[in-house]
């Protein structure tokens, strides 16, 4: 068994309104920054022991599918590295 860190990034699907990101963008503009768009995402770092990087990724993928993301509104990706 090897210890891995799986990084799960959950973001709203393109086209789904993100009111918090819109509000943050406006606040940045008020501070004088120039920007075209801003997207927010949640990131989860999961430490876990697995037989292989692939097995770790599969487990993290299932975590995203069942809880960390809501497939109705979210896309997600999983990256695995040895801890």
């Amino acid at each position: 068994m090897t210890t891995y860190t799986a990084t799960v990034t959950v973001r709203l699907k393109r086209g789904v309104l993100d009111p918090e990101a819109e509000t943050t963008k406006r606040a940045l503009e008020r501070l004088g920054f120039e920007l075209d768009a801003l997207r927010s995402a949640d990131q989860f770092e999961v430490d876990l022991d697995a037989e292989s990087a692939e097995a770790a990724a599969d487990r993290a993928d299932e975590m995203a599918e069942r809880l960390l993301a809501n497939p109705t509104i979210h896309d997600y990706d999983v990256e695995v590295a040895e801890a």
């Binding site: 789904v16 309104l17 993100d18 009111p19 918090e20 819109e22 509000t23 809501n70 109705t72 509104i73």
Partner: peptide
């Protein structure tokens, strides 16, 4: 479906 953040935030 899903219920998520109000458009007004």
């Amino acid at each position: 479906g899903a219920f998520t953040t109000n458009a007004s935030a």
